[in-house]
Write a protein that binds this DNA or RNA. Structure first.
Lengths: 201, 201, 201, 201
DNA sequence: TATGAATGAGATTTCATTCAT
DNA sequence: TATGAATGAAATCTCATTCAT
């Protein structure tokens, strides 16, 4: 059993050490040799911990996603207003710091892989993310409804909002696109319609 | 005197003949040899009409997009109600016929390429599509506003709607996803909020 | 018969028009397409006047050599002293003007081809050049002997001098090599040994 | 533990095993596939030891040159008279055995490459050879001067002699050229002029 | 005679993966 | 468990030459 822990640990170490590299190069230009070099292990060793290059990249993505999820949850809990919570939920598509840029790149690379040659495992992963975030979003909105701050119809928009965020991400490499806080604007516009009364204050 | 060839025509012929192949295999698994075989020309001939493999794929995408744009415009003009027009605009993300499936695959492959290694030319192309469709959408919505069928605020949702459609596309490979008419539902939900009066009828 | 003249003329035109190109790119990097483009004829037309790419390049070299030979002869006749005549003979390996640099490049490229894959025709051409120049050189030296300005043994050095000049050429791409007037120095050193008496004046 | 390989040794093995092949075909017609076949390794393996085809060929040339240098030095030391030492130095341009023919071919191919598309590295290598041999030659001549067997002026001919040898090499493929011992004749002629007194004995 | 579209063999190089040690 | 040498399939692209028109 400690052996298993060790294996898992090393797997994670390798994946994490190559995250930056993956961000820079993307799936197709990342080579297994580079990953090995970066992790200070031999090329053959990589295959003791991963089944294939795809497996490596998937692990990188999973670890990054896990870390991001934790952070998002924390941020949601640390904010008060509904809109802030929603923004925290979608920070991937809103934030401008370099960490966010890196994460966007990882997520976009993930989507690129899925779009190009979706494996069942990856599709499942994508679906899980979608469900997880949509559920969190619904929880937030439900609370807003309970607190009479949002109209009940708002629930219908949870999925749509998530899709919108995803769509915004797909344009994020366009020059100046993020300068304009696109998703935030969309959220604002939507909230005008679904908030109850007192936004004017 | 030499054989006279309509170079543009032949370029299109080659691109079109390989569209199916591209849909099946995607950018990375498509080989120039296959394209040549498919077009019944020699490998070298391909390079008389295209500069590189990327050029081939881009041509395939461009022709497909052009054909789709024409169809969309026609469909928009052939429908009456605003909602139908909007649905026609987004038919890529709504339709279920095999032709639509193929087109979705092409578009998704295009996005995958852009996400993975965006060339300026491709980004520009993506941006142009976005602008074109958003403008068409705004025209439709404006008409709705003029006809007092839509609240003026609706204009703010044009970009958001487009992003939403794009996002929906990014999930379109998920099992059963399309059975539920996702984007149509989102549009319906949104229209409830932005239509004036008589939707209840 | 006028037809033949025309053919020859056009052959020369094509060759001459591509001389500059050949100087720039060398045999392996020169393409037949470029030659055609440069001569304002179609690719196929080239093969009406030349048998192969090698044939084109050989023609370029031949015309250049012919022109150079004529010039050398003129220069030899226009100078008085023996040493000047010898220098005129070897101007290819001595001169520093851009025209000379171009000619050196052509000749060196010719040697490169011969060294790499000597065809009988090319070897014969090289041999002819060698014989021609050696004979001219001998004529000059003979005159010097007759005029009692050179020791009779000097005749033995004709071949050696030519080889020396050829060898100097083989280093001519070395940085600063030509600044030092290498061949002229060698000739001067040799003349000290073979001149009769009065060089000190 | 992995198979331990002396990378340098293997690099040399591959280069040496392909020397013959290189002699036969020259740079442009030598293919990496052939090199691999010849060395009984896979094509990919070649690239574990060499960066490019040019790198392979350069290695072949370097190893051949190194071996030749050693041999020349030995031969110089094993002979007594100045003229013999000089002949030993230039044995590349004099010897008639098959080994010498092979070495000439290698050297000529090297010159062809340098003439055609000189890389800085290759030019430097050529220059180093030139300097090395010229220095050795000067050492020999200096000893002759010290021993009062050669006139001091002879030193001025060191560079010229080397150029002459190089030049002779450039004609070495001409039919019957070597039968006549060309360079030896040139050397003899020169020595008549620069030797002190007693050559007649 | 002139054209230029078509050819297709062939070359270099990359890199994920395997496996003997 | 760790290694890293070896693999070899596969991919893109070039270009001299041909030939139907």
């Amino acid at each position: 059993m400690p052996k298993i822990v060790d294996k898992l640990q090393k797997r994670q170490d390798i994946a994490l050490s190559s995250t930056e590299l993956f961000v820079e190069k993307g799936f197709h230009k990342l080579t297994v040799s580079e990953v090995a070099l970066n992790a200070h292990v031999a090329k053959g060793t990589i295959y003791e911990y991963f089944e294939s290059k795809e497996d490596i990249v998937f692990a990188i993505i999973e670890y990054a996603q896990k870390a991001y999820d934790d952070e998002v949850l924390t941020n949601i809990n640390n904010t008060q207003s509904i809109k802030e919570k929603v923004s925290a939920l979608f920070s991937l598509c809103i934030a401008k710091d370099s960490e966010a840029i890196k994460r966007r790149k990882i997520y976009k690379e993930f989507i690129a892989i899925v779009l190009d040659e979706a494996s069942d495992e990856m599709i499942k992963f994508q679906q899980d993310i979608k469900n997880k975030y949509t559920n969190w979003l619904k929880d937030i909105l439900l609370q807003g409804i309970k607190d009479k701050k949002l109209k009940p119809e708002v629930l219908e928009f949870a999925d749509g909002l998530f899709a919108m965020a995803e769509g915004v991400l797909m344009f994020s490499h366009i020059q100046n696109y993020f300068d304009e806080n696109i998703l935030q604007l969309h959220i604002d516009a939507l909230f005008k319609l679904i908030q109850i009364g007192d936004d004017k204050k």
